[in-house]
Computed example of a mutant assay.
Amino acid sequence: MSANVLLIEHPAPHVVLLRINRPEALNALNAEVREAINTTLPRLDADPEVRCVVLAGSEKSFAAGADIKERAGMSAVDVMKMSTTRGIAAFSKPIIAAVNGFALGGGCEYALQCDIVLANDRARFGQPEIKLGLVPGAGGTQRLPRVVGKHNALYMVLTGAMVSARDALRMGLVCEVVEGNCDARAIELATQIAAMAPLTAKLIKEAVNSGADMALDAALRLETRAHQLAFATEDVREGIAAFIEKRQADFTGH
């Protein structure tokens, strides 16, 4: 595996920035990129010093889908044997997508797996697989409707059309649109999240993700258990004390 397809940066305390680095291919997601993400994120998940991750690409492209040249001539069996990228969705800590430029196909689906999606004003999102006779394979038919609704999702996956950052914001695919490069804003937001209680952040993420497909009563019980469990942490005591003493809390992740 090339060491350069995924750059690892440490832009702020407890924050890691992962940068997909195949600019010559608009950051197309080949096997090396998928393997790098699948091996790097579990390591960061196990590192107590890491509290939030930003996933980014280049100025021109977050990720322009799968590497189609790599897929040419593949059989169904070959595709079944391929490594998929589940590392993003399985990551237990907050992860932010910083989308500059194109987020197409797998790139859009990678952003969908993140917890917060920021985009610059030139970003373009799309699921163009149908133009190649393909079905989206990393969440385009499942995560996308859950985020933007059935009709918006079918519009995207049946036409293969790209949508602007502003339209993506309107659909709920994007949380915030930033003029120019959005990396700095993503790092700012990650730094803010990293200053919070990290165990609580994991509990919140788990409750939101697990409860999404539950009946409301069951999901509310899940939330109640997460709320109760947080009281087992030292960080809750620190947060309450800091509030009473009118000072900044110093969360340690215990």
Rank of each mutant, 00 (worst) to 15 (best):
M1F: 11
L7D: 13
H10N: 15
P13E: 06
V16W: 05
P23K: 01
N30T: 09
N30Q: 05
E35F: 12
A36M: 03
I37N: 01
I37C: 04
T39C: 09
L41R: 08
R43N: 07
L44N: 03
D45G: 09
A46G: 15
E49K: 09
E49R: 10
V50P: 08
V53I: 02
L55Q: 03
A56K: 10
G57F: 02
A63K: 02
G65C: 00
G65I: 04
K69A: 15
E70L: 02
E70N: 10
E70P: 11
E70M: 00
E70S: 08
G73I: 02
M80C: 13
M82T: 15
T85L: 05
I88A: 01
A89C: 07
A90K: 13
A90L: 14
A98K: 08
A103I: 01
G106M: 00
G106R: 02
C108V: 06
E109C: 02
Y110D: 11
D115F: 03
V117H: 03
L118Y: 02
F125P: 09
G126S: 05
P128R: 03
E129C: 12
V135I: 10
G137A: 04
G137V: 05
G139H: 09
Q142W: 14
R146K: 15
V148Q: 02
N152D: 08
V157I: 11
T159Q: 00
V163E: 02
V163P: 10
S164G: 08
A165D: 09
A165E: 05
R166W: 02
D167A: 13
A168K: 02
V174W: 00
V174E: 01
E176M: 08
E176Y: 07
V177Y: 00
E179R: 11
N181H: 14
D183E: 14
R185H: 10
A190T: 03
Q192M: 14
Q192F: 13
A195R: 15
L199S: 10
A201D: 12
I204P: 05
I204S: 09
K205D: 14
N209C: 10
A212V: 12
M214H: 06
A219F: 12
L222Q: 11
E223L: 14
T224V: 14
H227V: 11
L229D: 15
T233K: 11
D235V: 03
E238G: 06
I240G: 01
I240S: 03
A241I: 13
A241Y: 07
R247F: 02
D250N: 13
G253Q: 04
